[in-house]
Design a protein around this nucleic acid. Structure first.
Length: 423
RNA sequence: GGUGAGGUGGCUGAGUGGUCGAAAGCGGCGCUUUGCUAAAGCGUUGUACUCUUUAUCGGGUACCGAGGGUUCGAAUCCCUCCCUCACCGCCA
């Protein structure tokens, strides 16, 4: 949520920055401003009336305790009642529509962000490693998986529908080993606190991180939309301290969690239909940071490096791209995507998205900290996949395949998978 | 799912219709005293919004789990919901 004061005081600035996202938002800003001034007009009026009523009520109390007649001020207050009730309602209505409008406005892109319309304008920041060379046509994960019995897509479809996977045997163990490896890496080496959060969250948490109210069709809702299956652990982790005032001494906070992620993929039917690249339920190890505003961009670089470290240790070639203004997610000011090379696909797969939401989410969830000068300020929140399992899995088996169709488990994973090869 | 108890400021905890944003204590902050520490005394100490202001200061409104109701007036009375605790039932 943007700060209404910023919009009020610098509407041009806000309009320009939002325009770089490429969607038409200027009109929304006009609407917010209109409601804001109306809201304040009503509120001022209400407050003046309330002050008058309080003054009279106090007088009535004093008159009564002195056994003096109080019917005159009582009549006055009674006469005010209806107007106050009406104004109270009007203010509440204006408040609500202002908030609803604000909840639908995306975050401002970082001032240094590359201006661009879509993903094709995303600049490459760096690459690591090189595409592995095969002297044969590498198999993709679907063929490898079928050959080695790593997962069963047909039976998953039978029990759950299309877009689900059922890992089997060593394929399941590889998945479990990867999870363990990732959690160990981020807790022991990178200093994150491990959290095992609920996978079902209240509606307001989804609003807090920005999935709602705009993108309800992407989420699995239960109990008439009051709770939701999490689309990412970003939701429970970032909301952990919602409606709290932390001490500046506690910041930054680092959280890591492994959870399944549930997504309807409403807008992407027909895309990535083969294999496990885009499915309705996948596992992910997620990193979340809550920081002071002064350090959040520094922390974003560190968080991205922590995610990159996963791919480095596993020896997977990847590139880091920065999302341009038109490709930036709703809640984010700046995002780096990590894309890992998948030889069987012949393309890069997004396995991590590392973002700084600045105070956008904190404002929605009322997450503050008390600074050293005693002032309450909104925290900055960051998150990044560390990493998405299904796609990491794809890149790993496709990269580590051998000519005979077996998979050589990378050295750092062997203690977790307990085999050297899957054949 | 059932029954009972309860949710008040950073914490403990008073307050059962009026002058209560809320006693008292603890904690925090400031000052004084003091060789240091400790202790004591005095003062101060919530959040949001809004008006005024360059800003501070200041004025006002709201907030005693949330929402609604009764009333001239609600922390206090009534209703609904949420949450916590205890016990019972069912179940991993």
């Amino acid at each position: 949520m943007l700060d209404i004061r910023l919009i009020r005081e610098s509407p041009e600035f806000v309009r320009e920055r939002l325009a770089t996202r490429g969607t038409e938002l200027a009109q929304l800003i006009d609407q917010v401003l209109e409601i804001d001034s109306e809201r304040r007009r009503l509120e001022t009026q209400l407050q003046q009336l309330s002050a008058e009523r309080n003054r009279l009520s106090k007088q009535i109390g004093m008159l009564r305790s002195n056994n003096e007649p109080s019917s005159a001020p009582e009549a006055k207050v009674r006469a005010m009642g209806e107007e106050i009730a009406g104004l109270t309602q009007a203010v509440a209505a204006a408040d609500e529509s202002q908030r609803n409008l604000l909840l639908g406005i995306p975050n401002l892109p970082h001032p240094n962000a590359t201006i661009g319309a879509d993903a094709s304008a995303n600049p490459e920041v760096r690459t690591w490693g090189e595409k592995p060379v095969f002297n044969y046509q590498p198999l993709d994960h679907v063929d490898l998986g079928a050959r080695l019995g790593l997962f069963d897509l047909e039976r998953a479809a039978k029990i759950s529908g299309s877009g689900f996977v059922c890992f089997t045997n060593l394929g399941a163990r590889l998945q479990r080993g990867l999870i363990q490896f990732l959690l160990d890496l981020h807790t022991i080496e990178h200093g994150y606190v491990e959290i095992c959060p609920p996978h079902l969250v209240r509606r307001e948490c989804m609003v807090g991180t920005g999935q709602l109210p705009k993108f309800e069709e992407d989420a699995y809702g239960l109990e008439e939309g009051q709770t939701f299956l999490i689309p990412t652990a970003e939701v429970p982790l970032t909301n952990l301290h919602r409606e709290e005032i932390l001490s500046y001494r506690e910041l930054p906070k680092y959280f890591v969690a492994h959870t399944p992620c549930f997504r309807r993929e409403a807008g992407s039917a027909g895309r990535d239909t083969r294999g496990i690249i885009r499915i309705h339920q996948f596992d992910k190890v997620e990193l979340v940071k809550v920081t002071r505003p002064e350090t959040s961009y520094e922390e974003l670089e560190k968080l991205t490096a922590d995610a990159e470290n996963v791919l480095k240790i596993l020896g997977l070639h990847y590139r880091v791209i920065e999302l341009c203004t038109g490709d930036l997610g709703f809640s984010m000011s700046k995002t780096y995507d990590l894309e890992v090379w998948a030889p069987g696909q012949g393309r890069y797969l997004e396995v991590s998205s590392c973002s700084n939401a600045e105070d956008f989410q904190a404002r929605r969830m009322n997450l503050k900290f008390k600074d050293s000068d005693g002032k309450n300020r909104f925290c900055h929140t960051l998150n990044g996949s560390g990493t998405a399992l299904a796609r990491l899995y794809v890149a790993l088996v496709e990269t580590c395949q051998q000519p005979d169709g077996s998979i050589l488990i990378p050295e750092p994973l062997r203690d977790y998978v307990r085999v050297k090869e899957i054949r």
